[in-house]
Design a protein around this nucleic acid. Structure first.
Lengths: 202, 202
DNA sequence: GATAAATATGAATAAACTTTCATATTTCAA
DNA sequence: TTGAAATATGAAAGTTTATTCATATTTATC
């Protein structure tokens, strides 16, 4: 963790270069993936010299980690905002799921970047999902108390199931290149049916 | 697809080298990932010369694709076998889910290899999951006809939801290094509750 | 406008990587 | 046993890569 740090610029000019690198990095890491993107690709897309890159980032990995962190924040924040004014857990699940899918639809690169952490550094990946699961369980618990969520079901498993649904239904949308918000609403509603009633007839 | 082919050996001696390469490839691609594994790593682990590698495989990618194909077959086959003698769809879902998780628990490398295809070649990844979804829908359809599965729910979405559940509940197990079959049975049962009744109280 | 700090440059370095090829050895069917 | 096909070898070629550094320019502050 020593040589994977970044340094924020201290002047307007520096900020401009910094932003150009970020932009090129997002585009290229997202498009071609981390390993297939070289520093040369990044600096020539950003139109800065090689040395400039190393003023702001210790290494290729440092830029990746910076972007990963930014995306994680954005995703968590958009979920938080979306669920703020919901009246019950059911509505919250719907809003959270929709926010996530809308996010990855608008920026599929974020999606890839997070998944790719499994191959950049498996520990980052594991830490991300385990901590996400813990936080999910904490958010679900009060609704078991209040009786809205069943009390005979393991919440950790529920958390992983819900993460799995978001991610793979997100895939379904990303695979369909001309998907719109209408399509997102459709699949989200289908998922909610499933969470409400299961998939089997009684 | 031209320079990513393999050639099967024609003598016993050749087969031995071929197998040594396969074994080293599985181990290293699974452990360090495709991009972080060099041909040098593979041939030195397999104890063959560089030239020998190229007798059987056109490239580094060719070996990856060979292994990917093998794992896909194995996973599909183990799911097929597991669901063969089930009496209803509910039992089939349980058996299929368990077979998948047991497979990835015993060989997490297979798991990683398939996910990594998103970064080796996104088309492979997309093709894998979309064709899997199509086949899933085809298998579910008769059970909508028979009335076992609800008829007011989009089957494509159900397919992606079920793939999401398998994959992420699989993660939950893989993350827990000393998970046993008992743990698999536990999470599988929790998932089945969810598929039967949903997660909300009525 | 002087000055130190910040920023920019890109050629050069050094390491790593995939793939080729000329040569040598082994296998196996006739 | 013979000889063509199959297999094995590893040094070398030819890329590509991340990173460094000496030098130059620009910025902000007093």
């Amino acid at each position: 963790m020593k040589n994977s740090e970044f340094r924020l610029p201290k002047t307007k000019v520096g900020l401009k270069s910094f932003k150009k690198i970020i932009k090129a990095g997002k585009y290229l890491y997202g498009k071609a993936g981390y390993n297939s993107t070289s520093i040369n690709d990044i600096i020539s897309k950003a139109k800065v010299a090689a040395g400039t890159f190393y003023i702001y980032f210790d290494s290729k990995l440092a830029l990746y980690l910076y972007l990963l962190d930014e995306y994680r924040h954005n995703i968590r924040r958009s979920a938080k905002e979306a669920t703020q004014n919901c009246k019950d857990r059911l509505e919250m699940e719907r809003a959270g799921l929709k926010a996530f899918i809308m996010y990855v639809m608008e920026d599929p690169l974020a999606y890839k970047l997070i998944w790719e952490s499994l191959f950049v550094d498996p520990n980052i990946f594991k830490e991300y999902y385990t901590s996400f699961a813990v936080s999910y369980v904490n958010h679900l618990e009060p609704f078991v108390e209040s009786g809205e969520i069943r009390d005979d079901i393991d919440l950790e498993t529920v958390a992983y199931v819900l993460m799995g649904i978001s991610n793979f239904v997100g895939l379904q949308i990303v695979f369909n290149e001309d998907a719109t918000e209408k399509d997102v609403d459709f699949v989200v509603d289908e998922c909610m049916k499933l969470l409400k009633y299961g998939i089997f007839n009684k």
